[in-house]
Design a binder for these strands. Structure first.
Length: 664
DNA sequence: GTAAGGCCCGTTTTT
DNA sequence: CGGGCCTTAC
């Protein structure tokens, strides 16, 4: 986009600071630019930065927005709040912990933790579920907590389990992801004077990716904004791809009803993509019934055709993508950061990753099993949460026999039994059982348990409140003490895997160390670090500076753009995903929006690949092209066989430019 | 009673 | 590929 020029609609959006404002921002219409300029304009108009609250969907988006505003204004802006809904909720809960009856060091439970807790609660109620059932129950609980549904059609036991689960959470001083939104709402509803506090503080509110906020998130922000009514929401119903999490175009309708005096602005000029790419996107999305009518207008030239390739199988697909990237890298002298490879599911990244690795193309992968979800990291986190909060059964039981110390199933059973019969926490029960003689455990097991408890007590004491700047040292000592590195080598058959895991651990400790020694950090509590890491799965960003190909799911590509985009696996059953279509009627339209989001990430070149065969769990299956492909006018598409057929002399040219790049 | 090795299961998307 | 569950060995 032309620097420092805003079109009339953008300008109007930037200048409308007071009252409710709805900005419908089509893909690539300069939304981020409008938001950052709008905040800058607020500051120009002497609105104090601490009165501004900007909420985004992902941490990536929050960081990006904060960065862009700082860049634009050239100011430090330490009192500007740019945050995700979840982090914002946590901030409120931390500030108001005592009002809500929480102890000081809250633990945020991620989805896996929640599921363990559900499982454990079920056990206490003599219920037994397999992991698939636990997953279903977890998503039911989440929907109930968010007010999306009730227990109708479910056994009464499930309701009991739900209560049990929440009581446990409270007991462990823990909150799950949904609590981060719902608890602040309850707080504000039940304590008007607290609500007033926040209303006085945040008078100007901005919500990005509004189409992806859930109903409970919207209600939270609405409650906050209702007095001053300076609420600006920015969204695009065509890019709503999180309805399974309770996000809905209905939010936009609710907003219109709640704020009838709103100003509405549509940004329909696309500055991102070539005319062809945009025409394809428009043709595709037109097929959706549930949408606000709009037509993105191209600002760029037509550009080349969208290229579609039908590789033999998933290996050939990955090779095609990597070959094409390398060809464009040389021919068009593009940095690797120009390329984005998008897929529907995380599992599809594997083959592509292998091909990238094989050809030594630097890449960064976002999504997938995030750093904090790795087993080894979770182990350390469980140790730390246990140390911080002895009442946290879930994390204590998780580390009981990790590393293996002879405390197996039998000991676990005894702890369950004792804690239930006597109404004790697992930790207290373990202490009781560790006493030799009076214990149903074998002497050996009791002794081993005793050693563990002593060991933990020592470290708990050293950690104190968990506030301090030397916690990283203590964690290092702990790891040595429990011989965690040895454990990794024993557990993993390949040394490479063990090394990799140990490196992750060291990264984790390094993160902690860096975070603690950051002088800007005014609350260096260990619990704050753990919660932050739980909410913000920031990946290693080491490679990014030197330029690397981005490989990610379409979901995590939202809000991003790349000069060259590959969409892999454009096949029926993947995009649209089979599971999504069978779920409900609206699933198909959501999948179409997903494809729309993928396409509109591309600025200059777009490649689609659709395998003829793909290997699944059970053998190779013949693929059918995605029905969405037929919705793109044929004249915009060009079928290609190969992209690497170098013409005469091109190899030399490639060699020359490579030499130049390497500086030889 | 515990650990280790093998088999089968399922795997949408994210805070 | 990872985890849960089974069998077998100690």
């Amino acid at each position: 986009m032309e620097p420092d020029q805003l079109n009339p609609e953008q300008l109007q959006a930037v200048r409308t600071l007071h009252g409710p404002l709805l900005i419908i921002a089509g893909a690539g219409s300069g939304k981020t630019r409008v938001i950052t300029h709008r905040i800058a304009h607020m500051l120009d108009k002497h609105i104090p930065q601490n009165q501004i609250l900007a909420l985004t969907f992902t941490n990536k988006a929050a960081r990006e927005m904060e960065h862009r505003v700082k860049e634009l204004t050239g100011r430090k802006l330490t009192n500007l709040t740019v945050s995700t809904f979840h982090s914002f909720g946590l901030q409120i809960l931390r500030e108001q912990a005592t009002t809500l009856g929480y102890a000081e060091h809250l633990s945020v439970y991620d989805s896996t933790d929640s599921q363990s807790l559900i499982k454990e609660s079920a056990r206490e109620l003599d219920m037994d579920f397999d992991s698939a059932e636990i997953q279903t129950i977890a998503s039911l609980f989440s929907a109930v907590k968010n007010g999306q549904r009730d227990f109708e059609g479910f056994d009464e036991n499930i309701q009991t389990l739900y209560r049990e689960y929440n009581e446990h959470l409270k007991l462990f001083n823990g909150v799950d992801f949904d609590d981060l939104i719902v608890k602040p709402f309850e707080l504000w509803t039940n304590f008007p004077e607290v609500l007033q506090l926040y209303r006085d503080r945040y008078r100007y509110i901005l919500v990005d990716e509004f189409q992806d906020t859930s109903l409970s998130q919207y209600r939270l922000v609405k409650l906050l904004a209702l007095e001053h009514r300076n609420l600006c929401v920015v969204g695009d119903d065509d890019q709503s791809i999180y309805s399974w999490r309770g996000a809905n175009y209905r939010n936009i309708q609710e907003f219109e009803r709640d704020f009838p005096e709103r100003v509405e602005i549509k940004l329909e000029r696309n500055y991102r993509s070539t005319g062809n790419i945009l025409s394809a996107a428009n043709a595709l999305i037109r097929n959706n019934q549930n949408r606000k009518s709009k037509q993105l207008k191209a600002n760029k030239a037509e550009g080349g055709a969208i290229e579609i390739h039908y590789p033999e199988n998933e290996t050939a697909e990955a090779e095609f993508i990597v070959r094409t990237i390398k060809a464009l890298f040389v021919r068009e002298n593009r940095p690797y950061s120009d390329f984005g490879i998008l897929v529907r599911t995380n599992s599809l990244t594997r083959n592509i990753e292998m091909a990238l690795l094989q050809d030594k193309v630097p890449y960064s992968l976002s999504g997938g099993t995030s750093f904090m979800e790795r087993k080894e990291v979770k182990d350390v986190v469980s140790y730390l949460r246990t140390l911080l909060n002895p009442a946290d059964d879930i994390h204590f039981l998780r580390i009981l026999n990790t590393p293996r110390r002879g405390l197996g199933k039998a000991v676990l059973e005894q702890i369950y039994r004792t804690s239930r019969n006597r109404g004790l926490t697992a930790w207290e029960a373990a202490q009781l059982l560790a006493r030799p003689g009076h214990s149903p455990l074998t002497n050996r097991a009791a002794a081993d348990l005793s050693i563990l408890l002593d060991q933990l007590s020592v470290f708990r004491e050293r950690l104190g409140s968990g506030i301090g700047r030397k916690n990283a040292e203590i964690v290092r000592d702990l790891l040595t003490d429990i011989r965690y590195e040895n454990y990794l080598y024993e557990e993993n058959s390949s040394t490479r895997a063990a090394e990799w895991r140990w490196q992750n651990i060291q990264h984790f400790v390094q993160f902690l160390s860096d975070w603690e020694s950051d002088s800007q950090n005014d609350y260096p509590a260990l619990s704050a670090f753990l919660n932050r890491m739980t909410l913000d799965n920031r990946e290693d960003e080491g490679e990014k500076g030197r330029g690397s190909v981005s490989l990610m799911t379409i979901h995590s590509a939202k809000g991003l753009e790349f000069p060259v985009v590959f969409v892999a696996g454009v096949e029926d059953g993947i995009l649209p995903h089979a599971r999504s279509v069978e779920e409900n009627q609206e699933g198909f339209e959501e999948e179409r929006r997903l494809f729309y989001v993928a396409i509109t990430r591309a600025q200059q070149k777009l490649f689609l690949t659709c395998c003829q065969n793909r290997r699944t769990q059970k053998g190779s299956e013949t693929c059918t092209p995605s029905p969405f492909l037929q919705e793109i006018p044929p004249h915009l598409l060009k079928t290609v066989e190969n992209y690497d057929t170098f013409q005469q002399g091109e190899a030399e040219k490639m060699f020359e430019s490579l030499k130049k790049k390497l500086g030889i």
